[in-house]
Amino acid sequence: MTRLLQKIVVAIALRLLHAALVELQLLDCTMAQELQKLPKGMSFAIHTGHKAPALTVRWDGRRLQRVIEAGYAAQCTLRIKALAISFRLFTGQMGLAHAYAQHALTVAGEIANVMRLARLVNRAEAYLFPPFISHRILPELPKLEVSPIRVYARIVFGFLKSTYS
C-alpha cells in the first residue's frame, strides 16, 4: 500500500477515534467515568510518523476537544515510530498493548497518562472494530454498554453536523 494511502487511512481513523471518544462519553458510563478522572486541561497528542497525520485532544472538563492549533504542546505526546506501524495500529492489525510491547511508541510526558489514554482507546476500539478483531488486539474484551451500530450512527450524524471540528 502506498504511503499516501496509508496517510489517508490513518487520518480517517484518527478522526473516527476522536468522534468515538466524544460519543462514547455520552453513551458509555465506563468511558464517561474514565474521562471524568482526567485532570481538567489534560491534553494528549498522537503522532503517527514523519509528515503523517496527528491528533491532539484536550479535556476541558466536559468534552474531549480536538485541538487544531499548530505547534500546540500537549502534556502527553505519544509518537508512533513509523507510519506503517500506525497503519497497522489503526486498522485493527495490532493493539496498543502490543505496539507498546514492540517498542513502537515513544512517550513524552508522564507514563501514567499513557495508561489513561490506552484505556480510553481500547474501549473505543471495542466499539469500532468487529468482535473478531477486538478479541485479537485487546487484552480483554470489555462488556459493551450500547450497540456499536448506535455509536456509528451517532458518529455519522455528528460528522454531518460538523460536531467534531
Partner: peptide, 13 residues
Amino acid sequence: AVNDGALIVNPRA
C-alpha cells in the same frame, strides 16, 4: 496501580 506502565504488558488485563 492501574496507571502504572508495567500493567500494560501484564499477560492478563
